[in-house]
Design a protein around this nucleic acid. Structure first.
Lengths: 349, 349
DNA sequence: CTGAAAGCGCTTACAG
DNA sequence: CTGAAAGCGCTTACAG
């Protein structure tokens, strides 16, 4: 049993770290903030000291001094609750770390959107983070621009030059998943598309189509069916596909919710997953590990993307305040293909 | 369209309030903190000035000076990702509002639990929030006690006198849901129990049993089946129940994940939900609104519970610091029964 | 690339 | 009951 160290509590400050490392507090501060203008040797020494002392920056001190005290709105419309929750955690965590205040507003129709936006403006937000599908609404962006509010788009498939964004490469992700199924030996692979109004849906579909073509396979038209990213639309799409005479041996769904629906329909028809049918998702939301079999899917680092969105926002607000407006910064995060139980080799026969 | 107010933002400090009221900053501070040792006249003057200027105390400044700057750990083991996400949002929100720092640690086995706890202790946390099932682990509580760390239990079914807790009334919730099904006309209602190691699971089962008894109905033994709160266990339980000769017309699941599994199995057997079978969940996690039909369930205000847990924690830490330890405070939050698509009158026949 | 000084907004501890 | 001084932990702005 590890022995319990005596509590040191609030005692370890950046001064302690600095003196232990034999540098000035400023240098220690710079290291803690990843300021690139610090020599390697010093950086290492400070980092070591911080680790040994188990230093945690006091957020109050930090945010009091740096006028990071920005207000950031998160405006969302109708995304999946699970996706939004993950995003919000990242946004809130980074907000608290950087001393930024986060204001969350929901809107549904266009009327309610205006009201929500107004509430945000009245609070004096400096910027607004826009998750999908709002990130692709020209109208929303225009209104925010008019009010001189900085915008960061999350998971847009169509990044705009002047507006910072954080996203994954949806095209590559879909391509990787298609290749995974090809590698398993599948040739009859079907696609359930996502809501065509969401730009990432289009990229995912394209990634699939191109990868199949590159493998020299022709996808019959009836193997590509529409979907809306909802479970219910997945139910309909799966019924259509699984009733086909030339039934696919694998279905690539454009998100997890629809993949979960495919599994349900397959089971309903007495098909085993993955024995008779491989099913894959996209996003790696909680449902992917909730259902059985668990879903092979593309992990999208949603929480990390939330954190990054806040950081991008803070950068831009800082620039704007100091009078040097910045062209948008576009971060592409890494996705990963997570192999779980729902994909396997096609049935023999 | 409402016009956009000009930002006033962070500019109003307690010095502004003080000078406007013609008093020292100290007096203004005392008024803002409800210090009773301030004359009426002064108090009113300060309050008026604060209102006119729309003064909002800067939390960073406050918590930097007063060592309210608490550190709160959130230690979790293997809960549903969706549940934990919701809880974390509440914890993070309240943490940022009150200037408390939140540290999240995950553990799985007993070994990793020790390591996670040690990390928390090393950081000097003042308290640890324990969601289920850790909230019921005597062992965990004992170790935390030894280190003199304050504990707040979330969603425990067995609150302990000295330890603050926030929860809903699981017994009443299950009872209300049972009554809902009775009111719809069901008499053959089955129960899928939750993990017996989780105390709320026991209360939910009891609420069901007692309510059925009160309605004068005898539940056959085979209508009460075990579950583990996981989707997979729900799959098994549903198969068992739906193959019964005396098949129930409604199944009350002890959480949403298992209810989702019941729906999947029912559909697999060609049963319509709710036409042939009513299914209800518990917790109102995102899956309840993801699947089709959407689930009638008991809404547990998980995010609000996270917020409350932080507030309780802060109260206790403050008391402890000022030398007057406080007996545990037990908050029971309101649940609500959300009627959606998965429950209806039993089939005629 | 590094550091000495000053100060963010508030409240503690002391003095009247 | 009220106030002048000092300082919480950190980083900005300036100087080298």
């Amino acid at each position: 049993m590890a022995k319990t160290k005596r509590r040191t509590s609030q005692t370890v400050t950046i001064l302690d770290v600095a003196s232990r490392a034999g540098v000035s507090p400023m240098t220690a501060s710079r290291v803690m903030n990843n300021n690139p203008r610090v020599g390697e040797a010093m950086r290492d020494r400070v980092l070591a000291a911080a680790t040994e002392l188990n230093y945690r920056p006091n957020l109050a001190g930090r945010s009091l001094r740096s006028s990071n005290a920005a207000r950031i709105g998160l405006l969302y419309s109708n995304p999946s609750a699970a996706y939004l929750n993950q995003l919000m955690i990242g946004v809130l965590e980074e907000g608290s770390l950087s001393g930024a205040q986060i204001l969350v507003e929901k809107c549904s129709g266009i009327r309610s959107q205006r009201a929500a936006m107004q509430r945000l403006l009245d609070t004096g937000v400096d910027g607004v983070i826009l998750p999908p599908p709002l990130c692709d609404s020209r109208q929303t962006k225009r209104e925010l621009d008019l009010a001189n509010i900085t915008v960061v788009a999350v998971a847009t498939g169509a990044p705009v030059a002047g507006v910072s964004s954080v996203r994954i490469d949806d095209y590559q992700g879909a391509s990787a998943m298609t290749q995974h199924l090809l590698d398993l030996g599948h040739t009859a692979i079907a696609l359930i598309k996502g809501d065509p109004k969401h730009t990432p849906a289009v990229l995912r579909a394209q990634g699939f189509v191109d990868t199949m073509a590159r493998a020299g396979l022709t996808v019959p038209a009836e193997h590509i069916v529409p979907g809306l990213f909802t479970y219910r639309s997945g139910l309909a799409a799966a019924s259509t596909l699984l009733k086909l005479k030339n039934r696919p041996t694998a279905i690539l769904s454009s998100n997890d919710d629809m993949a979960a629906a495919v599994v349900a329909v397959a089971h309903g028809m007495g098909l085993r997953v993955p024995g008779d049918l491989s099913v894959t998702g996209f996003d790696d939301t909680p449902v992917a590990t909730t259902i059985w079999p668990t879903l092979t899917t593309i992990h999208q680092p949603v929480t990390a993307m939330g954190r990054t969105a806040v950081r991008l926002m803070l950068d831009e607000i800082r620039c704007k305040r100091s009078g040097k407006p910045k062209a948008g910064n576009h971060q592409v995060m890494k996705y990963s293909l997570v192999k779980r139980e729902s994909s396997a080799a096609p049935p023999r026969g």
